[in-house]
Design a protein around this nucleic acid. Sequence first.
DNA 1: TCTGGGGTCCTAGGACCC
DNA 2: TCTGGGGTCCTAGGACCC
Length: 415
Amino acid sequence: MFYNLNGDSIMGERIIFHVDVNNAFLSWTAVKMLNEGEKLDIRKIPSVIGGNEKDRHGIVLAKSPIAKKFGIVTAETLYSARKKCPNLKIFPPDFRWYYKESNLMYKYLSTFTPIIERYSVDECFLDLTGTNLIYKDYIKLAYEIKNHIRDEFGFTVNVGIGNNKLCAKMASDFEKPDKVHTLYNNEIKDKMWGLPIEDLFMVGKSSSKKLRELGISKIGDLAVCKENYLRKYFKNQAVFLINSANGIDYSKVEPRSSKSDSISVSETLPYDVSDKEKIKEILFRQTDEVSRALREQEQFAKTVAVTYKNSLFQSYQHQMKLSVPANSTTDIYKVVIQILDESWKDDAIRNIGVRLADFCNNRVEQVSIFNEVKEKKTGKIEEIADNINKKYGGASVMPASIKVIGKMNRNKKSN
DNA sequence: TCTGGGGTCCTAGGACCC
DNA sequence: TCTGGGGTCCTAGGACCC
């Protein structure tokens, strides 16, 4: 594709599809249950996918259309959801299954264009610009895609068509489920300006509150807002907001590599923990998990961070830059413990996590011969463990200390 | 039986250097 | 003998997404 300096295609308007799975987690669980011989389709009853309340994971991850009618929203507590709808049925998530279904869809969508971006587990952008000789009628194509997914895979999607990613995404959000919508540049005023400001992509709770205080309640209000005026309240974000409201977006559909810019794990603990030794055990397990993922993408991290959320729901985090990029569990764990010592406020921890960032491919370093030899050895041991784990799945081999912790956790649970 | 988990991006402010 | 100013790097915190 050819673009001018503004990013516009010089071959005319771009054609972007956004494919969005309707109530993804719930639909996929429904498909799984039906496959297993279950007669009931949980999409047709008041139901949600939710975490385990005993482990303090009790929030709504996805909801059925009927549950939505009861006012249930994603991320609210199951406790509150049940109050809104007493005979609500709650089903546990199955993330492995979700990835399988997601891959199925991605593989199918990839047959239409190589310029495809997997935006999340249940959303893809397709750039079909310049394919008009092959596809001729894009609306017809969208229906074909939508119907194929429904009939062959058993779940429904919305397809949004626009001249850029923003409009395609806004379009797929219009009416659900199992629908095709367009939001071409010449339809922006009619189809988008009347919508509440909250519906605009990237306008969340905080921005919408500020905008409403300024008397901007519809997307159309924002679209005609003066940049200088809005800049006083939103700084550089002002231009972005006004552009979005006008359906202007130059970002490209970018096929993402399997490598991410950061890797993190965090977990809400079944009970608050203020015992430092216990915290260290958890951090060790988490460090091993993220560093293994980092080694899998054959990279090294320059930044290590520990994140906390205490019993009062206050979050904080502390990070450290490494002089030598690392990817071994042992090296990273040393830093994690240093961070813990410097940053933990001795408060009762509800949620804790480890994050790795600032990746590089090479380990440029100047170390003494002694250190180098030592580190190579650690690297070798971990490489062997990684290979075994890859072969036999899961964490067949891990440092003895982690196994002990795993055992302790199991004991705790059965108590 | 209150409030998950994995990401990306931006900004303010401090430290440090010239 | 009253405190410049620009650039860079780094961190904490926050907003937003699914």
